[in-house]
Nucleic acid binder design. Structure first.
Length: 268
DNA sequence: AACCAATGCAACCGCCTGAGG
DNA sequence: TCCTCAGGCGGTTGCATTGGT
């Protein structure tokens, strides 16, 4: 293939003309105005015609990750974090696929979140993020924490209003959630996998009505400082209750890693 | 106040894929 | 069928910021 970088490197003259590094306000403005008048796509052509001394790839990245109007800025909500964790369990490093289920969030942002927050914890625990052990920690420790936080912040006790429902971009799903209000089925302790399974089911059966019923795990039956975790026995049996120190944080940095590592049997 | 290390994130790089000639 | 190219993706890097000493 002939990448932009290759064509650039073929000419030292071009090298001196092309800009790299952080974008300036003027460049942003040029790009926004060009796209406003000519639309997205044809990035190499855009790069040439807009007067930007950037590669087409650079323009595309800047637009998609930063300038596009629907790009959401700021911290990820607990719901979004939870969804990322679950979808990553399912799909691995398919960042763009994961991003499709988080409206306004870019693959780059999700990837950065994973690397800076999630992988950091794996390093502290001295385990591989791809290991079953770490996935156990995510499922049995981190996710319940997020769920608890979500629940605590929900004054009505109803989670995932329509605006917060992870929405795949396909129009059939959009239709299903906009034409009928989402029902929330509170259940006992379980993994959010069921929510994701609903997404899966919908991907395979876009006409299904079941997408309007979200299976939300609910921990109100548990004492605040306790959660029931299903250890990954092959038979999926429920093994024991776990306890964690109660602080109000839900982000991974605030996790009591020692506790987590201890009950999982790692890191100490 | 100054220095240093850690962190977060924007941007880049290289590879892959699919469309079109 | 092969070749070229644009666009997309995941991995990596570089730098500004933050926090600790």
């Amino acid at each position: 293939m002939s990448t932009c970088s290759k064509s650039i490197s073929s000419s030292s003259e071009d090298d001196s003309e092309l800009r790299r590094g952080p974008w300036t306000l003027e460049e942003d403005s040029l790009l926004i105005h060009y796209i406003a008048h000519n639309g997205e796509g044809r990035w190499n052509l855009l790069a040439k015609r807009s007067g930007l001394r950037r590669t087409g790839k650079s323009c595309r990245l800047r637009w998609l990750n930063y300038l596009k109007p629907d790009v959401k800025r700021g911290n990820l909500s607990p719901q979004e974090q939870l969804l990322i964790l679950e979808l990553h369990c399912k799909w691995g490093n398919r960042w763009s696929k994961i991003a499709q289920h988080l409206p306004g969030r870019t693959d780059n942002e999700i990837k950065n979140y994973w690397r800076t927050r999630v992988q950091k914890q794996a390093r502290h625990l001295k385990i591989d993020t791809n290991s079953i052990a770490f996935q156990d920690i995510i499922r049995n420790y981190w996710m319940p924490r997020l769920i608890q936080k979500i629940e605590e912040s929900s004054s009505s006790g109803v989670l995932f209003q329509n605006s917060a429902i992870p929405q795949p971009l396909d129009s059939a799903y959009q239709h299903s959630v906009t034409t009928a209000p989402a029902q929330v089925v509170m259940q006992g302790p379980l993994c959010l996998s069921e929510t994701i399974q609903s997404l899966d089911h919908h991907e395979q059966n876009p006409e299904s009505e079941s997408m309007n019923v979200l299976q939300i795990p609910q921990f109100s039956e548990c004492p605040t400082s306790q959660f029931h975790a299903k250890v990954n026995n092959d038979d999926g049996t429920f093994v024991k209750d776990y306890y964690y120190a109660d602080n109000n944080s839900y982000d991974v940095e605030a996790f009591n890693l020692e506790t987590c590592g201890t009950w999982m049997g790692y890191g100490k």
